[in-house]
Design a protein around this nucleic acid. Structure first.
Lengths: 204, 204
DNA sequence: GTCTATAACTCGATAGAC
DNA sequence: GTCTATCGAGTTATAGAC
């Protein structure tokens, strides 16, 4: 692969290379040699900077998770109207995932493989909590502002529509006859499409 | 002369064990020893019945994909109204995935890691084609039966809401404070919830 | 800090007895 | 068909020169 940032420090280059390779191949599928090649650096250096493959993976995984979750939680915790929250969440979340298209599958996939104690590794001390959003939806239903809908289903629907297209991109491209450019264009559209779709469904 | 079989033939036991292990750990993460242990059989037998790890994986993967895709295609090709199609697709697809909750992540994950020629392996000769459904939606929009919406986004939304909750189950359970029973109950509800949500959004 | 060489180990695959 | 023993390729990790 072509390297651009030769002036970046070795440690930084390793981190970038490791992120790329782990995201594409997962923990088990990635090779230390792949990462070294990608970083344009000797394989022994990986062990010099990060003791082992597992340690290196842990750093990458933690950073990935810390990119995904806190921002989501920040948005749903804001004190704005439900419709605005839906618009903001879907737009900003799409922006994150467009920039890091491998992130969701990587995180979800490794979570499913972790045996037990991934909570701490993944979220740090405090896992995200969507109770606030669920309560807000519940409140708006009861006030009669939106149609009756189960808050949990609504949250699931919103997250699903944001994330799933990226996870299933190769399959979608086949069954929908799309190339990369068309896919990218559609994802840009979804920054507003998803919110419109949701709001059309729940507004009175 | 018909021989008396063991309670399950070795080949069958291997297939079941391989399915379980590959689904949990993926191709790269699974070990032949894991599969042998799971099947209660010697490691050498795996090679006797299926030449190599790759061949064994291919059998499992093909069977998994053939569970997922043809059924989807059959439903979207039926000659019924769009609303009925949405109701039928979401309901029957949910039923498949409830029975095989690991299937979507397994298939999607391996598709993303395959280098090139996964088309043939995955779909057999002919990949599924959603053009028919896209055309039907387009037609109903133009006739003014449903609100104007991009057919591709609508199809993405429908598939996302069906599949994503199963892929993200561990994460959802954490952020939404759900146990397995609650999750199962919600998925049962989604057999009708998703169609209602979609139809509420696009009906005039 | 960086590199070469290689040790230590894991794992898929095979040989050969029964 | 099934098992034990082992080989050989590929990988992580380390030793040691510079």
């Amino acid at each position: 692969m072509v390297k651009v940032k030769k002036e970046a420090g070795a440690e930084q280059r390793i981190l970038e290379a490791a992120k790329k390779v782990f995201m594409q191949k997962g923990l088990a599928g990635a090779r230390m040699q792949d990462i070294a090649d990608e970083a344009g650096i000797n394989k022994a250096m990986l062990h010099y900077y990060f003791r082992s493959k597992d340690k290196l993976f842990e750093v990458i995984f933690k950073e990935a998770a810390s990119n995904l979750f806190p921002k989501m939680v920040a948005i749903i915790s804001e004190d704005i109207s439900l419709f605005d929250k839906i618009r903001k969440f879907t737009k900003e979340y799409l922006e994150i995932v467009i920039e890091n298209p491998y992130l969701p599958l990587f995180v979800l996939n490794e979570i499913n493989k972790q045996p037990v104690n991934f909570h701490a590794k993944m979220f740090g001390a405090k896992p995200p909590d969507f109770s606030l959003l669920v309560k807000q939806i519940d409140s708006e239903v009861k006030k009669g502002i939106i149609k009756p809908i189960s808050p949990v289903h609504l949250v699931m629907n919103m997250m699903s529509m944001c994330v799933f297209p990226f996870i299933s991109k190769p399959m979608l491209q086949i069954v929908m006859h799309m190339d990369d450019l068309q896919f990218r264009y559609l994802m840009e559209q979804r920054k507003t499409e998803i919110a419109n779709f949701i709001i059309d469904s729940i507004k009175k």
